[in-house]
């Protein structure tokens, strides 16, 4: 039985396989396991944007797929769509658009119009999604999450250690920059 609590660690290290924003050598690495149809992930999406803005080049953000398909019938489709866009170099554009348009999930036309706007090959993406061309990669993300202690979405890891606090800006900022938080408290006292 656990005597002292240690949060689980990320078992699959962040690497070249990952979709990431921010410098590769940033001192702080935030990994999210997310599901495009999960409302809590939708709520966490602007939180991550805000963290990225606050922390700038000191933060690298990585997104991995954790679609809970028995609860979210569109989650796999969405994940495969983002991966198909990634193959053409537009992962983050489509990732962001999916979260900003969660209420349109299920309306493939809505997303196809955006892909066209990005000058993506809409027919190719539709074909790859229909053939589940990227499902093994999504499966790899999912299993790496299961083995790292991801039990639901969103789950975050900060420098490889699971973050168990609320997915909100202030507590996450403090967890991402413990030194900075302490300095601030000190200067106030």
């Amino acid at each position: 039985m656990p005597e002292t609590y240690e949060p689980p660690r990320l078992t699959l290290p962040v690497g070249e396989r990952d979709h990431s924003e921010g410098p590769l050598d940033a001192p702080v690495v935030l990994v999210e396991y997310g599901d495009y149809q999960c409302p809590y992930c939708g709520a966490a999406y602007p939180v991550v944007k805000r963290l990225q803005k606050e922390l700038g080049s000191t933060l690298r953000f990585v997104f991995r797929n954790f679609p809970i398909t028995n609860a979210h019938p569109q989650a796999e489709w969405a994940a495969e769509t983002a991966e198909a866009a990634a193959a053409e170099g537009k992962f983050w554009e489509v990732h962001d658009y999916l979260y900003e348009n969660q209420r349109f999930l299920g309306d493939a036309e809505h997303f196809a119009r955006y892909e066209a706007k990005l000058k993506l090959d809409v027919a190719k993406i539709a074909r790859e999604v229909a053939q589940h061309a990227f499902s093994s990669r999504i499966e790899e993300d999912f299993l790496s999450g299961v083995r790292s202690g991801v039990n639901g979405t969103p789950t975050f890891f900060i420098n490889g250690s699971r973050y168990d606090g609320p997915p909100e800006v202030q507590p996450m900022l403090e967890a991402l920059t413990p030194g900075r938080g302490a300095d601030r408290r000190k200067s106030r006292s």
Binding site: D35, C38, P39, Y40, I68, T69, N70, A71, F142, L143, V146, N151, G152, T153
Partner: peptide, 16 residues
Amino acid sequence: PVCSDQMGLYAQVMPE
């Protein structure tokens, strides 16, 4: 009340 509960996770991990 959570959107991805323990039992739902196990259903998803069933192939493993």
